[in-house]
Design a protein around this nucleic acid. Structure first.
Lengths: 99, 99
DNA sequence: TTTCAAAATAGTTATATTGCAATATAGAAC
DNA sequence: GTTCTATATTGCAATATAACTATTTTGAAA
C-alpha cells in the first residue's frame, strides 16, 4: 500500500517561498525573535537596540518584512510600533532552535 | 512578572539563515516535498518528472540543496539517488501547508 | 517657526541568484 | 573502443539583494 501523494502545488510554493526567503536573514530573524519574545508591538528604537545595528539598516529590514506581510506598523505620534502579523513565520524560529 | 528573554544568538542565525534561504525556492521546495512523500532515495530522472523542469535546472537545484547539507547523493551505477538528510527543513513544508 | 528626536528613503557599489543553452562526464551496454 | 542514458557543469545575461552613507520626512515640543 502506497502513501497518498499530495504535493503542495507550485502556485502555492511560488507564493510562499519569497516570504520565507525574505525572512531567512540574520537581522530579520532577530527582529522576529525579539518581537515574539516581547509579545507586544515595539517601536523602532527598541528594535534597533535588540539588533545592535544602525537605525537605517534596521529600518530597511522592517520595511522588507512589512512588504512581505510578516509585520505591521502603527504610528503613535513620534514613534512607529511594529508587530508580527504572520505568525506562521515564527515556526522558522522553532525550526532554528531545534537545529 | 516578565517572561525570560533568551533570543537566539546572532551566530546561530547567521549559520542557519542561508540554509533556509537556499531552501525557500519553489523548485527546491518541490524537490523536498517530493522526496519527503516518497520516503526513500529517488534518482534524478524521477525528481525531474516530479518538478516538470529541465534536467539541467533540477540538477542545479539538487546541487544547491546538497551544498547546504539538506540532501545527500549516492550513486548506483548509472544513476544518482538523492535523499533528505536535514529533516529540520521539512518543517518549512509544514509551515507552508498551514499558510 | 525653529528645533529635536524618531523613523524612512535614496543613492551607490558590491555581490549573489536566476534561468537557460551548450557542453562535459560517468557508467552501462554493445 | 563506440554508443547510449543519466547526470553534472560551465558560461552568460538579467535581475535581485546586501550593506553603507547621506539625506529626508514626520510629529512633538520649545
Amino acid at each position: 500500500m502506497k502513501t497518498e501523494h499530495t504535493l503542495i502545488d507550485m502556485e502555492t510554493l511560488e507564493r510562499i517561498a519569497p516570504v520565507i526567503r525574505h525572512t531567512a536573514h540574520p537581522i530579520r530573524l532577530r527582529i522576529l525573535d525579539f518581537l515574539a519574545n516581547e509579545q507586544m508591538p515595539c517601536n523602532v528604537t527598541h528594535i534597533v537596540e535588540a539588533c545592535q545595528q544602525s537605525q537605517a539598516i534596521v529600518s530597511q529590514q522592517l520595511r522588507i518584512l512589512k512588504d512581505q506581510g510578516v509585520l505591521e506598523a502603527k504610528r503613535h505620534g513620534n514613534q512607529v510600533y511594529y508587530q508580527v502579523v504572520n505568525h506562521n513565520v515564527l515556526l522558522l524560529l522553532d525550526c532554528i532552535r531545534r537545529h
